[in-house]
Simulated assay, not measured.
Amino acid sequence: MIYEHPLAYVIGLQGIALLQGFIGEHDRDFVEARLAEVRELLDNDQLSKAVEVTPVSTVDGYRTWSATYDDPANAAFAIDVPIIAKIVEDLPAGVALDAACGTGRYAEILSGLGHRVIGVDSSPEMLDLARKRLPDSEFLEGTLHHLPVDEVDLIVCGLALTHNPDLGPIFAEFARVLKPGGHLVIADIHPDGVLRGSIPTVRGPRGEPHRLVTYRHSMGDYLRASLQAGFTLLGCEEPQRATMLDKAEEPGPWDVWPWSLAALVPEAAYAATGPQMVIWHFQAVTLHTM
């Protein structure tokens, strides 16, 4: 069970901003304003009602989320897709695996570049949507730990590793499936983004608050797992989209936490903003012949 307290969240944002001020990233006026805001927040009765949230599996969570997953309001799509597309457009066409393919967002890009696309996902509902999007491509049910494919030239995987507690077995499975010299492109929620509450929200059958089970992996966790599996790092991007929020006067419903909570303290939230995603580009070890 996750205990989400709105006051704790906004004070946490203030804390990040104040730590930045302590090392000289903000001036005295900024620091004094944050301290004054903290005093006001402590007296705000609207921030006293916590919510207990149940983590749910990706299969259960995406069953609910699939109906609205491709909604343009899903802000992550504006960040990851252009970067993924730029990386893969320079790679030769071949057999491409969209691992944890969801509704086929990446599969559509790969198909347009001439790849023979295979999509794999653990959610039947998401796979149904992917098949409607790309009826001529192959979509299979499976997990990142047991991919039902062999010998592919390229793997892309988006917004999925953060739902797993251990990255090692997943990178090992990627290495098993990928041909020597093949490419692996991963987009995931940045560990700083997870820390700031970028965790998918869904409602249960009786309206219960749920979040998809999510783990905060450090950048080093990705590197250690990939290197141990025999990959070479070719690139890493940490995109962020920092915009000043319009100030809100109320915390808003739980369904839009933490974004509505951040709007209560827009200056602190803006200062605390960091990378939202991390995008990795790896290459499998190339076998050399005598």
Score class of each variant (00 low, 15 high):
residue 205 P to H: 14
residue 226 S to M: 09
residue 203 R to Y: 07
residue 228 Q to I: 09
residue 188 D to L: 05
residue 206 R to C: 10
residue 220 G to V: 12
residue 209 P to T: 09
residue 191 P to G: 10
residue 217 H to T: 03
residue 206 R to F: 12
residue 215 Y to S: 02
residue 210 H to W: 14
residue 212 L to E: 04
residue 233 L to M: 13
residue 211 R to P: 10
residue 205 P to L: 03
residue 198 S to E: 14
residue 213 V to Q: 10
residue 220 G to D: 14
residue 231 F to D: 00
residue 229 A to K: 04
residue 221 D to Y: 08
residue 224 R to H: 15
residue 216 R to L: 04
residue 196 R to F: 07
residue 201 T to Y: 13
residue 205 P to D: 07
residue 187 A to L: 10
residue 233 L to A: 08
residue 196 R to P: 05
residue 196 R to V: 10
residue 233 L to V: 15
residue 189 I to S: 02
residue 194 V to P: 02
residue 189 I to Q: 10
residue 223 L to G: 05
residue 197 G to S: 03
residue 197 G to K: 07
residue 190 H to W: 02
residue 221 D to E: 07
residue 222 Y to D: 01
residue 214 T to G: 01
residue 189 I to G: 01
residue 187 A to T: 15
residue 218 S to V: 08
residue 195 L to P: 07
residue 234 L to Q: 07
residue 199 I to F: 03
residue 187 A to M: 06
residue 219 M to C: 13
residue 185 V to N: 03
residue 233 L to R: 05
residue 223 L to E: 12
residue 231 F to Q: 00
residue 193 G to S: 11
residue 225 A to E: 01
residue 191 P to D: 02
residue 214 T to Q: 05
residue 194 V to A: 03
residue 193 G to Q: 13
residue 228 Q to T: 15
residue 189 I to D: 04
residue 216 R to I: 03
residue 203 R to H: 09
residue 198 S to Y: 15
residue 192 D to E: 15
residue 195 L to E: 14
residue 233 L to I: 14
residue 202 V to M: 11
residue 211 R to F: 05
residue 194 V to C: 04
residue 230 G to S: 05
residue 192 D to F: 05
residue 223 L to H: 08
residue 216 R to G: 02
residue 232 T to D: 13
residue 206 R to V: 11
residue 187 A to G: 11
residue 211 R to D: 12
residue 205 P to C: 10
residue 207 G to E: 01
residue 209 P to D: 06
residue 224 R to Q: 15
residue 226 S to H: 02
residue 222 Y to S: 03
residue 202 V to P: 07
residue 206 R to L: 14
residue 215 Y to E: 05
residue 217 H to M: 10
residue 200 P to N: 15
residue 211 R to G: 09
residue 206 R to T: 12
residue 228 Q to E: 14
residue 230 G to F: 03
residue 196 R to C: 03
residue 224 R to W: 13
residue 221 D to P: 06
residue 188 D to K: 01
residue 196 R to S: 11
residue 211 R to Q: 11
residue 210 H to C: 14
residue 218 S to G: 13
residue 198 S to P: 07
residue 213 V to G: 04
residue 230 G to Y: 05
residue 186 I to K: 00
residue 217 H to R: 06
residue 205 P to K: 10
residue 205 P to A: 06
residue 204 G to Q: 04
residue 225 A to V: 02
residue 218 S to A: 12
residue 214 T to V: 06
residue 219 M to Q: 09
residue 205 P to F: 01
residue 231 F to G: 02
residue 199 I to W: 04
residue 191 P to A: 03
residue 188 D to Y: 05
residue 216 R to M: 08
residue 218 S to Y: 06
residue 213 V to E: 10
residue 222 Y to L: 00
residue 210 H to Q: 14
residue 206 R to Y: 11
